[in-house]
Design a protein around this nucleic acid. Structure first.
Lengths: 205, 205
DNA sequence: GTCTATATTTGGATAGAC
DNA sequence: GTCTATCCAAATATAGAC
């Protein structure tokens, strides 16, 4: 939750550090509660109790309940950006599979996180511009990798297939692998689609 | 919402008919409210007001709020089963595309319906066995079609790809067609996957 | 910064008269 | 079957003492 993890140009401020640490503690507790009660089942009373506070004290750290969701959303994408590994020195197919498997692992590790980040299920919640920027930032490296392998034109197909398998898995058989084990085949499928629709250069087929 | 639409063996019962009609009216109003406020934003007070009742009167028709969600769930699948058209006399590819397009149309016509039917987003809500049976019943014809075209082994891949495109569309660009227009290509992709993994008979590749 | 106390709203659900 | 009245619980949020 440190917005600027290491900035030696600024002197440390113990008060700010402490506040950020408590904010992080609250967000962590919120994830735990949501995992147990559902994303929409989060309540400030329960959340406060879990971190040893009374509910009103939370307002020293967040302006509203939506602000907490927003912090969770931002942290989710920070984690996602850190978790993603851009393949190096791999074939296009192996790279696609690697990306897909890590995406699947990330999503299945926390279905409520997936729900908050990639679906829009909380009525009235919209991520702030700052949080949205974090979500957008991580796409750059990934898009560059796709482009360097000349499959940028297949990005939407990749994300569609990928999230579809994950979504079916989470919705219909949480904890299982019935759809996840199709990932390798699916990526081969997407790759051949990408090759047969390659623009500019002559298509192979 | 008629549970038994036409059963000539039983005499009509005007009282029961009236009650079923009112139940249907309530469910319709619930859909409208959810479309406006979000699936989780449904409140019994607002719902009652919309059908010209006081909130407690709803309990003459439904035992609880979850029972209303359950009726919505059941109606969603009744609509789905009626909307689905099993292709006849079409090639496998055209049949797949037809199935996929109708699925996409059905889902995009009502995102909250999609959310209730195919995702699990309401904390604590579980469809009743009766409603679940309705959702399962419709799969028979569809599975038979897949089997008759010798692509039953690719059913999970089909559903994964299909829901993925719809899901991306609804989450990232509601109202648009950025992912939906990939459906035809995606179905060709899935079909070639199905052919290359066909069991029993010798694989082609 | 945390608390108590409370405002305010709203939620789902029940009791009982008509 | 519908209403009024009400319960009860829970929610988010604010005010103000310490």
């Amino acid at each position: 939750m440190l917005e600027v993890p290491n900035d030696v140009t600024k002197p440390r401020d113990r008060r700010t550090e402490r506040k950020q640490a408590t904010r992080a503690e609250i967000v962590d507790a919120a994830w735990e509660l949501c995992a147990a009660e559902g994303l929409a089942g989060l309540s400030l009373r329960d959340l406060a109790a879990r971190v040893g506070m009374q509910a009103p004290s939370l307002y020293s750290y967040f302006d509203s309940k939506h602000a907490i969701y927003d912090a969770m959303f931002a942290e989710g994408f920070r984690q996602f950006n850190a978790y993603r590994v851009i393949p190096e020195g791999a074939t296009t197919l192996d790279g696609l599979r690697s990306l897909a498997h890590r995406f699947a692992e990330f999503c299945t590790a926390s279905p409520v996180r997936y729900q908050l980040m990639f679906q829009r299920t909380i009525p009235g919640f919209e991520p702030s511009p700052e949080s949205y920027a974090i979500s957008a930032a991580g796409f750059a490296d990934y898009a560059a990798w796709m482009a360097s392998h000349e499959i940028a034109h297949a990005t939407d197909m990749y994300t569609g297939v990928m999230t579809g398998l994950v979504d079916q898995q989470l919705s219909n058989e949480p904890g299982g692998d019935r759809w996840l084990r199709l990932i390798d085949d699916a990526m081969a499928m997407v790759l051949s689609y990408a090759e047969s629709t390659k623009p500019k250069r002559r298509a192979r087929k």
